[in-house]
Amino acid sequence: MRLLHTSDWHLGRSFHRVGLLDAQAAFIDHLVSVVRAERVDVVLVAGDVYDRALPSLPAVELFDDALHRLAGLGVPTVMISGNHDSGRRLGVAAGLIDRAGIHLRTDPAGCAAPVVVADEHGEVAFYGLPYLEPALVRDEFGLSRAGHTEVLGAAMERVRADLAGRLAGTRSVVLAHAFVTGGAACDSERDITVGGVAAVPAEVFDGADYVALGHLHGCQTITERVRYSGSPLAYSFSEAEHRKSMWLVDLGADGAVTAERVACPVPRPLARLRGRLDDLLADPAHERHEDSWVEATLTDPHRPHEPMARLRKRFPHALALAFEPERTGEDPLASYAQRLRGRTDQQIAEDFVTHVRGSAPDPRERDVLSDALDAVRAAEVRAEVN
């Protein structure tokens, strides 16, 4: 059975205030053409269909167009909600849409109710695990205190139990939206850290023949059976080195997996330039970036006059400008943000307590901080969903 694995469309998102709807529409055109040309049997969309819980009308119209075109091909599509989506809104009319071959899985309670598709070798059960915010789904899975690993583990226990009751030889595919250990993150993904821990081990998905992941925007292989497709477009300059693509996966009769990448169209290349302004404007090596979207980090000791206006004379699509004057590491003006880079909210909060009080928080205090951060995150999610 041939699968096309994609995710993180983020319909309605812009890139540094540049609208991307035309580029997203071009991706949908490309997706449909690949499904047709490669004789795809099932399309998998692993969450973050929209960029926000309340998407714009043009984004909804593009999504509606994508659904009609996929349904028109007669190819089943399995789609889950991600942490940017409102599961309730995305799942409206899911029962009716299901009849057209578009299977929306947005309710955590239905994670063990698969979409079953058969080929000449038997049945394949597709389990859709929407993004599981621990603070909101603990009760559903009977967990009093849990993070991402525990709720995903509980969901997969239900999946394995359902699979065990099916015909011997039934193959399985799981769609999930999560941060799996070993994955490489970038700046454009919304943080899903809970209690200082966001990553879950790949072993939580043991038993599935293929796991189609969403959330991280870089296409990557965690294991041969566990993969991220990445986003079809770049949504931050941290993705400048990404090669945007989808996975074309062949699932064999025995559950063996072979996969190849299918490139996505690039609306405009990205470039991250660094140096003194005069050097950036004169260096012939940057000629290839003159039609790119450009992020420039200026290292001049003093801020140049009208830097963006001057930069755009050579790079008309320059979008972002940062200043990092050349200084030694001991310079007290060194960026505070650099000192925080790579640290979680939990670590920052604990460091603050240590700095103010002179001693690190004890285990009970760490739990209080963790619970407070979780409560804030849950409140943000509830506000978006409602």
Rank of each mutant, 00 (worst) to 15 (best):
Gly122Thr: 12
Gly128Cys: 12
Val49Tyr: 12
Thr106Gln: 02
Val204Phe: 06
Asp367Phe: 01
Glu157Gly: 13
Val200Ala: 15
Met156Trp: 10
Ser229Lys: 04
Trp9Glu: 11
Leu31Phe: 05
Ala135Tyr: 00
Asp374Gly: 09
Gly82Trp: 02
Ser144Thr: 15
Gly195Trp: 05
Ala334Ser: 14
Leu143Ser: 03
Ala93His: 09
Ala234Met: 02
Ser86Cys: 09
Asp371Asn: 05
His217Met: 04
Glu380Met: 12
Ala184Asn: 06
Gly12Trp: 02
Val75Ala: 09
Pro130Glu: 11
Asp283Lys: 09
Ala378Asp: 06
Ala372Gly: 01
Val211Tyr: 09
Ile348Thr: 12
Val262Lys: 10
Ala360Thr: 15
His286Thr: 13
Ala37Phe: 02
Glu157His: 15
Ala26Pro: 03
Pro361Val: 01
Ala135Leu: 02
Glu189His: 07
His305Met: 05
Phe179Asp: 08
Val294Arg: 13
Val32Gln: 07
Asn83Leu: 10
Thr258Gln: 07
Arg288Pro: 00
Gly230His: 12
Trp247Phe: 03
Ile222Ala: 07
His355Lys: 02
Ala198Tyr: 00
Arg89Asn: 09
Asp48Glu: 06
Val294Asn: 05
Asp41Arg: 15
Thr297Gln: 13
Ser236Phe: 07
Leu3Ser: 08
Ala25His: 02
Leu62Cys: 08
Glu189Ser: 10
Leu298Val: 13
Glu306Phe: 07
Thr170Tyr: 03
Trp293Asp: 05
Arg158Glu: 04
Arg366Val: 15
Gly142Leu: 02
Ala202Trp: 07
Ala25Pro: 00
Ala185Cys: 10
Asp139Gln: 12
Ala164Val: 03
Leu175Phe: 03
Arg339Pro: 00
Gln220Thr: 01
Cys264Gly: 03
Leu73His: 03
Gly252Phe: 09
Val294Ile: 14
Leu321Glu: 06
His302Gln: 15
Val18Met: 03
Gly195Phe: 00
Glu224Arg: 15
Arg158Cys: 09
Arg364Ser: 14
Ser335Asp: 13
Pro232Leu: 11
Gly230Thr: 08
Ala178Val: 05
Thr193Val: 08
Gly82Glu: 04
Gly153Ala: 12
Leu333Tyr: 11
Tyr50Val: 06
Ile80Ser: 04
His16Ile: 04
Ala71Ile: 03
Gly358Val: 03
Pro232Asp: 13
Ala185Gln: 09
Pro201Gln: 05
His289Pro: 00
Val249Ile: 13
Trp9Met: 04
Pro269His: 14
Ala296Ser: 13
His217Phe: 04
Val117His: 07
Val32Gly: 07
Val381Ser: 01
Ala253Cys: 06
Asn386Gly: 14
Ala46His: 06
Gly128Leu: 14
His242Asp: 11
Thr106Glu: 06
Tyr228Thr: 11
Pro361Gly: 03
Asp29Ile: 04
Gly252Ala: 14
Leu270Met: 12
Asp98Gln: 09
Asp362Leu: 06
Arg268Lys: 15
Ala164Leu: 06
Asp65Gln: 13
His215Lys: 05
Ser144Gln: 14
Arg276Phe: 08
Glu384Tyr: 02
